[in-house]
Design a protein around this nucleic acid. Sequence first.
DNA 1: AATGCATACGACAACGTTGTCAACCGAGCT
DNA 2: AGCTCGGTTGACAACGTTGTCGTATGCATT
Lengths: 332, 332
Amino acid sequence: MRDVAALAGVSLKTVSRVVNDEPGVSPSVRDRVLVAAGRLDYRHNLAASNLRRGGARTGVVGGLVQDVGNSFSATMLRAVEDALRPRSILLLAASLDEVDVREREIVENLLSRRVDGLVLMPASDRQDYLSAEVRAGLPIVFADRRPAGIDVDSVTVDNRAGARAAIEHLLAHGHRRIGILTDLASIPTSARRVEGVREAYAAARLPLDDSLLVRDIRDAGTASTVAAGLLDLDDPPTAFFAARNVIAEGVVRELMRRGLQRRIAHVGFDDLPMADLVDPGLTVIRQDATRLGECVGERLLARLDGDDSAPRHTVFAPTLVVRGSGEIRPGT
Amino acid sequence: MRDVAALAGVSLKTVSRVVNDEPGVSPSVRDRVLVAAGRLDYRHNLAASNLRRGGARTGVVGGLVQDVGNSFSATMLRAVEDALRPRSILLLAASLDEVDVREREIVENLLSRRVDGLVLMPASDRQDYLSAEVRAGLPIVFADRRPAGIDVDSVTVDNRAGARAAIEHLLAHGHRRIGILTDLASIPTSARRVEGVREAYAAARLPLDDSLLVRDIRDAGTASTVAAGLLDLDDPPTAFFAARNVIAEGVVRELMRRGLQRRIAHVGFDDLPMADLVDPGLTVIRQDATRLGECVGERLLARLDGDDSAPRHTVFAPTLVVRGSGEIRPGT
DNA sequence: AATGCATACGACAACGTTGTCAACCGAGCT
DNA sequence: AGCTCGGTTGACAACGTTGTCGTATGCATT
């Protein structure tokens, strides 16, 4: 900027006025400055500008999700991005992969960068390390998971009710032995779904065979292997509940491999792009990632606009989408 | 920081030494400073630090893709993120949606923020507005599309060869009327694929019926509609080539709706998560988004490490994945 | 006792900006 | 001629840090 000022024969402040489109600069001077800036490849330094302007906004919010590449996380992030675009707020995105120390590290990093807000799909089980920021009024919105240890906005899905609906659907179709494949037990989302499963059994006054409940499944390949193991039991399940999208994918693959896709029922949690195109169509508990993301974005903007009302916890009800796989009766 | 210094009864510089883990601070003073910092909710300000340290790194790179929510873009970004994580470099992600002014705006914004590098899946047809940055040595890597107007690293797939392989595969199976559904003609990627189609026809000395070539298809719904229109012709196609993942999804859906999925052949470009699970399995030209992203990340790191060799253009060969839908013969 | 030396700490300037305030200029007024 | 006034422009400090250099202290050496 100093060089531009020198080349244009004006003061620093005048260059500042020009790059900020402030009034009170004669057209001829403005032109001289712009030419000089162009010739010197000058770029305005937003960091210095933000620093000088004091507590002003940086125009960046952090978006920490489970996996930027997963369709659920990615779709949600996209919706958040769309909500922020009108204000030209950028998104600093990162994947946590359920690793809690990574969450801590990245959050600290983002806070040092003075992000204007945080969207968090946490990997940790408590987030009290954020309490200073909460006190300071930093906008934080939890996505897909509830905060623990601090009280801030959250937008989640009723996982318990969704899982319960899935199991009730299968029970209603006559199934009594249901293979239940679920994610890391440490993830609250996953824990809630297991609770929903137990609730459904309890409500139906039926016993849940714990040997059919397998936890800590992280990818489609493992899901296939686990499904295979259950199918090889002497008394195999007549139905599966896959508590996450990649798990459902693995189960479908194993059922197809064995040609059992029309004989073993299957309900997934979380929709997959082509779930309606497999045969039979995959019955799922759908959670609308776009709607969730929109709501997260909305909350964040409200907080950025100074809304300091009590934290709001929005819970969306997931919906059962009937497509065929979940309506197969035992012994077909 | 001033407050922390005052509370701890030390100078600014000493606090700076403590927060930066510099040597030469006695344990007792260090403790006093840390306690004071904790009590005052002090956070180190990275922007000010970077400013003072001069041209040092900001630890952020921009990642501009077509759509953060699309599986191809998202998977690629994820791979880039993984490559950058060991250096704790963060990714500022944004979707361009093929809107070229948005690309300009966001890139300018990122440059003002002094990002350390740029990953760009461009929406514009020329990027000469970046030439000053190229001259200045800013690491820029193009993903999935070649740069135009500037010369920087790029990592792409051979779209022409991929499309040609798809058409040759269908021609080899006896098809002569192939419905070709493709994305915006203005996207170079898309244009290359159409070139590949023409090449295949030319090599086989067969005429290409332009009425079967439909461009500017942006989503699965439109793809379904277009496929329906072609199927309703007096002389309908016996095969489809869907030149992008969402288009393939739409075509599959329409074929299934009409129960034609075993009678009309279909080859897609770009894999879909469950493409092997539909019946018949979807034959595709697969491009490995993860591998592409890894390569982009690698190039970026090399440039960040000072590699100033001539720009490298890595081209991956997409592979034909045979699953059934592409091997149906006409008149089955 | 005088010297050397390492260790711990602080004063100050600078990074690239911008808000504040003062200075200048020519035009229009009394 | 002296005045005010709106429109331009510039000097300076400050934002929160850190690199440089200087100073003070304690301790071992001669």
